[in-house]
């Protein structure tokens, strides 16, 4: 299984900053967040950078897969 960036419980905008940093050095990044606002920010940012984005929700947590 691929490494997953665990960004649960972090205040805005730390999940976005960590995701942005990770995307600068990788083709594919998977992150887990538990705030709807963090999920929305990450997806919006990734789409603006022309990444493909998919996410699944389970028990209030969002696993977001971002790929070129």
């Amino acid at each position: 299984m691929a490494n997953v960036l665990d960004l649960r419980g972090l205040s805005c905008p730390i999940p976005l900053i960590k995701t942005k940093d990770a995307l600068s050095g990788a083709e594919t990044v998977q992150v887990v967040v538990d705030e709807p606002s963090a999920k929305e920010n990450i997806i919006k940012f990734a789409k603006s950078q022309k990444f493909r984005v998919e996410y699944v929700e389970a028990d209030g947590e969002y696993t977001i897969t971002i790929a070129k």
């Binding site: 490494n3 997953v4 960036l5 665990d6 972090l10 887990v32």
Partner: peptide
Amino acid sequence: KLVPVSKGV
């Protein structure tokens, strides 16, 4: 210090 990377969360 955060440990943001974990395997199979």
